[in-house]
Amino acid sequence: MKENAARNMPKQQVNAEFLQITTKPLQAKFLAQLDNLTDKLMQIFQGSKGAKGQKIKDIMAISSLYDDIDIKREHTLKSLVIYFNEDPDLLFKEYLTSSTEDERLRSTAATVMGIYTIRREGIQEPEDVGVVTEGHHEGFVVQTSDHLPAGSPACKTRRDG
C-alpha cells in the first residue's frame, strides 16, 4: 500500500517532504552532488576497458565539445549507467521537437523510470528535460539564469508551470 502511495505522490509533494526532512531541496542537492563527484567519476570511467570503456570514451568526447553543465551532467549519468553494465537507452529517451506528444507518451507508457530530453534537430541543448515515472511525465523547462554563476546547480532547470 505504501509503495503505491509513494509511486502516485506528485513530484512537488516528494520535493516538499524531502525539504522538510533534510532542509535541503532534492533537485538542487542531487545536481550539486553530481557536479561535485563528476571529476572523480571521470577518473573511474577512464579505467574502463573494452567495449564499455569505448562507449564511455565516445560519450565523454562529445561532452568535451560543449561548455554546458546540462550536457556534462547528462553524459556523466549515461556513462555511469554504462559503467554499471546497463543499457542507457532504457533510462534515457531523446526526442526531437518534431515528434508529437502522443508519440512520446506511447514510447514511454511502459517506462518504470526514465529521463527524457526534447531537442531541436541539430541543436545539442535541450528544450525540455523531464522524468518519466510509471509512464507519467514530469517536465522541466531548461533555461539559463543571468543572475546565477555558470555551473550553479540551480542555473539550468526550473519546474514548468
Rank of each mutant, 00 (worst) to 15 (best):
Q20E: 13
K55D: 09
Q143M: 10
D146H: 14
N36I: 01
R73D: 06
D67F: 07
I44L: 12
I59N: 12
H75P: 02
L148M: 09
E125A: 09
D68N: 15
V141A: 08
S79V: 03
T117W: 09
D102T: 09
T23P: 00
Q43R: 10
V112P: 07
M42R: 15
I59K: 06
L26D: 04
K49R: 10
V141S: 12
V112F: 12
E103M: 14
K29F: 15
L77K: 05
L96S: 13
V81F: 01
I69P: 01
T38A: 10
D128Y: 13
R7A: 13
A51Q: 14
F84D: 08
S64N: 15
L91E: 02
D58K: 04
H147T: 11
I123D: 07
P25G: 02
K93E: 02
L105C: 10
K55S: 14
F30P: 00
P88K: 05
I62W: 01
E94F: 09
G130Y: 08
T117C: 11
T111C: 10
K57H: 13
K11D: 05
N15A: 11
Y116S: 00
D35Q: 15
D102M: 03
F45A: 11
F30N: 06
I69R: 15
L26H: 07
V131T: 08
L77H: 04
K11V: 12
G114E: 06
K78E: 11
M9C: 11
Q143I: 13
S107Q: 06
V142F: 01
I71R: 07
R73P: 05
F84E: 06
D67W: 00
M113P: 01
Y116V: 02
V131S: 07
V14F: 08
Y95V: 03
A32I: 07
E103G: 03
K24M: 14
D89L: 06
D35I: 12
V132S: 01
D70S: 12
L80Y: 13
S145W: 01
L96E: 11
V142I: 11
